[in-house]
Design a protein around this nucleic acid. Structure first.
Lengths: 185, 185
DNA sequence: AACTTGTTTTACCATTTGGTACAGACTTAT
DNA sequence: ATAAGTCTGTACCAAATGGTAAAACAAGTT
């Protein structure tokens, strides 16, 4: 019982893509079954508590990726410019040219918020705090660093929405590039 | 046939509130019926093409409000500082302390995007262009004005998401205040 | 009073929703 | 070979989904 036909971890990328594209309510079990090629039986084998557990798993995996690719560099001792650059590169990759919103942001947007309130709060809080600390290292005062970090994260999230509305991924890349330049003063 | 028992226009605020809270897929006809106190029959009397038409009507009304309260002041000849202040006040009121996202932004976030692509595109495009023109009047160069306007709108949309995630309306008010100060340099 | 118009109620429809039960199949260890 | 575990397919379920049809109701006009 080492090799398994399908593993829970294999499903997470597909699940993430679905939830990030259609939202929580907009993603049906039928769509999940179709996209993964698995029947509901298999799905409920991996996620006995159903759809909420699937969404939770996506948030968990996103949080793990985020800790690795964004919080890690931000907290790693080193030049602020490098940390900020790594953050920006990770965001560009994760959001795929602004076409795909972050699962956390999407769940925060609608009433799904009430289901996942705690993870949402900590996710963005950690992000803002880690970035603010980097900005302090870069010379900002404590208060200014916090508001600048907040505005930076907000700008990223908003840029994804605008890129999706414009159906033009370039605007997201541009926003990230400007953000990087602004933060690295 | 002058006085009607219920008017289409009376329903729009309720509809807007529902869609902005739960998203398009997350808002069921049953919930709409319950919130408005009307049966499905009445609902389909006012919106014969069903839920899509209701969402479209909400977007139309939002667009009308936006043209009046935001684009109007931005396009009105006068000091940039006044136009920007009026925009910020209107946004604060409309988003209710960052607790309610904009219908346009919410529909842009998930795959509802494909249903309302055109209105979404024009909404944000008009906003950015009008704000950019004000920034030119305030002394910016044409290119810088456009990117600053884009970032400003993005920052607003993102701040709503962060305010909802933090469940703290004050952060939205703070973001708007900082934005106003930044734009009025 | 009758006619017309606009609104609401009620009952109904097919389809889809999230979820379950369970028998069978595959894989691995003994 | 067999037992034990893990995985999958099928069939099923009650409830909710978006949507429809038409009868009944209210009100204004003639």
């Amino acid at each position: 019982m080492v090799k398994q036909v399908a593993e829970r971890a294999d499903l997470l990328p597909k699940l993430a893509q679905l939830f990030r594209s259609h939202g929580y309510e907009g993603t049906s079990l039928a769509a999940i079954a179709a996209a993964t090629g698995l029947g509901k039986g298999s799905l409920y084998h991996f996620f006995p508590r159903g759809k909420p557990e699937m969404a939770q798993a996506v948030l968990d995996e996103t949080a793990a990726w985020f800790a690795r690719a964004v919080l890690g560099p931000l907290r790693h001792p080193g030049p602020p410019r490098v940390a900020i650059r790594e953050m920006c590169r990770a965001l560009e990759a994760h959001h795929n040219g602004g076409t795909q919103i972050c699962a956390f942001a999407l769940f925060a947007a609608d009433e799904t918020q009430t289901l996942f309130a705690a993870p949402l709060r900590t996710h963005f809080q950690q992000w803002i705090e880690a970035l603010a600390r980097v900005l302090v290292l870069a010379g900002r005062g404590a208060a200014a660093a916090r508001t600048e970090a907040f505005d930076a994260v907000a700008c990223i999230q908003g840029a994804i929405i605008l890129a999706r509305a414009a159906e033009d991924g370039r605007v997201f890349a541009g926003a990230v590039a400007r953000l990087e330049a602004r933060l690295c003063v």
